[in-house]
């Protein structure tokens, strides 16, 4: 369980204070997928980084499984981070390491022996369906494949928590669906608690059990996904929901176009053969 209590983050630049997070309170239950929804600049990335202390809260506390971790340093911080996997919008794979070496990175940091690391990486790549790409480099993979590698890497140390920072924002709609499916199945089979940051309501709708909506550093609404989507109480959520209707229409149009283009392509190909 992750509890965030009265968390505030203030940035100071050239004497000017900017409150990025303002008195945030939320609870993520064990084994659930928790969505944090908001527009860009609302503070959701900062919030998720407070959980593994990539960002240090100005005040308030982060409590993981009943332990206040806010002040963790050194060994304790290392152990905390070993238990919290993270994936990123632009995958953040090490470009000079092969796919397998990317997956073994957290294991190296955890001090696992080489033979064990290699075996574990093979297992993880099998799980995300990329066993055949172990010796490739990230630049040789598609975006969806790269995010799968990142997921395998995040799961390497068998964490109980996984943080997903706009994990599907750089992917097309079909790949987004596949990645969300994978996350959902990992959540179900391994029981990993997930915190998903997104600006897309459709993402939250597809995989989140509960959601919190954040605007200008404050939580404006939270509850179960069904509840929030059926009866949005805040203006922001209502706006986002309207926006979603438009974007799903766009998705439909795009999908139709794809079908048509494919049809044309295959016809052209046939024509060429005939010609």
């Amino acid at each position: 369980m992750i509890e965030i209590r009265n968390l505030t983050k203030v940035y100071e630049a050239r004497g000017e204070k900017h409150t990025a997070l303002d008195d945030i309170n939320l609870t993520v239950r064990d084994g659930e997928i928790f969505g944090i929804i908001g527009a860009s600049g609302a503070g959701k990335s900062t919030l998720v980084r407070c959980i593994n202390l990539l960002e240090r809260p100005t005040s308030g506390s982060v409590i993981v499984d009943g332990v206040d971790v806010t002040g963790f340093k050194g060994r304790q911080l290392h152990d905390l981070r070993e238990d919290i996997g993270m994936i990123f919008q632009n995958f953040s794979l090490f470009q000079q390491r092969t796919v397998a070496q990317n997956v073994t990175y957290p294991l190296e940091i955890a001090g696992m022996g080489k033979r064990e690391r290699v075996a574990r990486a093979a297992e993880l790549l099998e799980m995300v369906g990329l066993a055949d790409k172990a010796k490739r480099y990230p630049s040789e993979l598609s975006g969806g494949q790269q995010q799968r590698v990142a997921i395998a890497r995040a799961l390497a140390n068998e964490p109980s928590i996984m943080l997903c920072d706009e994990a599907t924002s750089a992917l097309d709609s079909l790949t987004t669906l596949q990645i969300l499916d994978l996350l959902r199945s990992i959540n179900e089979s391994l029981g990993v608690t997930m915190v998903v940051i997104t600006h897309a309501l459709s993402v939250a709708e597809q995989i989140c059990d509960s959601v919190a909506v954040i605007e200008a550093g404050r939580i404006v609404e939270q509850g179960s996904t069904v509840e929030v989507f059926a009866h949005p109480s805040s203006a922001v959520t209502q706006q986002l929901l309207q926006h979603r209707t438009v974007s799903s229409t766009i998705t439909e149009v795009v999908t139709e176009r794809c079908v048509i283009t494919e049809a044309i392509d295959s016809e052209t190909a046939t024509d060429r053969k005939v010609g």
């Binding site: 070993e82 990123f88 990175y105």
Partner: peptide
Amino acid sequence: DPSLVEAAESFGSSNWQIVYKV
């Protein structure tokens, strides 16, 4: 890329490990 350094931090790397491994 600073995001690679951040990713390495998120896996619990020490600064020294980030220097030579990343």
